[in-house]
Amino acid sequence: MSGNGNAAATAEENSPKMRVIRVGTRKSQLARIQTDSVVATLKASYPGLQFEIIAMSTTGDKILDTALSKIGEKSLFTKELEHALEKNEVDLVVHSLKDLPTVLPPGFTIGAICKRENPHDAVVFHPKFVGKTLETLPEKSVVGTSSLRRAAQLQRKFPHLEFRSIRGNLNTRLRKLDEQQEFSAIILATAGLQRMGWHNRVGQILHPEECMYAVGQGALGVEVRAKDQDILDLVGVLHDPETLLRCIAERAFLRHLEGGCSVPVAVHTAMKDGQLYLTGGVWSLDGSDSIQETMQATIHVPAQHEDGPEDDPQLVGITARNIPRGPQLAAQNLGISLANLLLSKGAKNILDVARQLNDAH
């Protein structure tokens, strides 16, 4: 009898209710805020589980004197976190989706994509230029951005401005803007500013005609071990179906173009009346040469937790077992079709030249 009692006690200790789920994140304040929001949602869904947040620095956090596009290494903000995932030191990792490459290392998958916040870019102005827009900034004003995508589009749109690289986390960039006289304004992701509670610093939100956004911008991705079915089931509740389908289309477009950090590629997606609209573009580094096109596809946005595919093969690095396969494939095909259209119009040449120029500098 006593033996059975011990077995029952052991089973209770090993039951999922007692389990601590370890969540990996970057150390920056924004990353911690984003991770806290994901953990809060998981806690609400699984009140019996405990969650421990483990923060670590990544290569991208450490190399702050070089433009991201020049470092010449993929997975700048993800490699150390993936290493911890691989060694079973954490069970899942919360990322900004735009930091996750469209091809993940073997053994990993994006197990959830959370509801997207505003994906557009924002302009934050130096205190002396508050009330201005990019259009009304004085001639030769210097605007800071760490992104080739932003610089290429904005140089084309605002030729009277000069664009220079600015690195560091959000706090560091804002301090550089406010305390030094080098920059009249800087460009940042609206979602990051909003998550930090800095709505009052948003001086201008850039519309798609001015600057399309990065693939996955404004959404959070939760990376897990691809074979860890328990954790895949656990994080599945975080999937937002519309965000998922938009981001599958965007990531398929980028992957098929073979774009990345070192080339200016941008997108804009919208879901309306059962249609998914995808606009994508590529630019030369100075913005003088560009190709942009829009395509659409009829896609039914499923309700969360309709029964999805059981075999769960990944699409552009994403596993969404609780979302039907048909809409996911339709979104992926839309991204591939748009990429093929741009490639047929000469996108590869623009991107190759951009890559060579970026590598040469």
Rank of each mutant, 00 (worst) to 15 (best):
K176D: 09
V224Y: 04
D352P: 14
I63V: 08
E89K: 09
A303H: 03
H256Q: 05
Q34E: 01
V123N: 01
I205D: 13
Y277R: 12
G326Q: 01
K176G: 07
Q332R: 11
D273F: 01
P302R: 04
N88C: 13
L42G: 01
G218Q: 01
V20W: 08
N349V: 10
D286P: 08
G346Q: 01
A67N: 05
L97I: 08
G168T: 01
A249R: 01
P138K: 10
K128Q: 06
D178L: 10
V224P: 05
Q328N: 01
C247Q: 01
E139P: 01
R150M: 06
G72E: 13
E86L: 10
M295P: 01
L278V: 06
A151S: 10
I110A: 01
Q194K: 13
R175N: 11
D240F: 10
G346V: 07
G280L: 03
Q275W: 01
L245M: 14
R201S: 01
P241C: 14
L177V: 12
K176S: 10
V282D: 04
F163W: 13
L85Y: 01
T145E: 01
C114D: 10
V103T: 15
S344R: 15
H305M: 07
A191F: 04
I33Y: 15
R164V: 10
H120G: 09
V202G: 10
R175D: 07
E89P: 01
L276G: 05
G216F: 05
S96P: 04
P241H: 08
G259E: 11
V142F: 07
P138L: 10
A252E: 08
E80A: 11
T35H: 01
R225Y: 09
P159G: 09
V123P: 05
S146Q: 14
T190H: 15
G197V: 06
R175P: 04
Q50H: 12
L170Q: 14
L170H: 09
C261Q: 03
D228P: 15
P313G: 10
P309M: 01
L137S: 06
C114S: 12
V282A: 09
Q217S: 09
K157N: 13
A122V: 13
I113A: 09
I166C: 12
L351H: 11
R26D: 01
T133L: 09
S37A: 14
R150N: 01
D307V: 08
H268Y: 14
V143P: 03
W283L: 04
H256N: 05
Q194G: 06
Q314F: 13
Q194C: 03
G281I: 01
D240K: 11
A249V: 07
K74F: 08
V265P: 05
V202P: 15
G48Q: 14
V20P: 10
P127V: 07
V265H: 01
D312T: 01
S290L: 08
H95P: 01
T145G: 06
L343Q: 07
K74Q: 15
R201Q: 09
K115P: 13
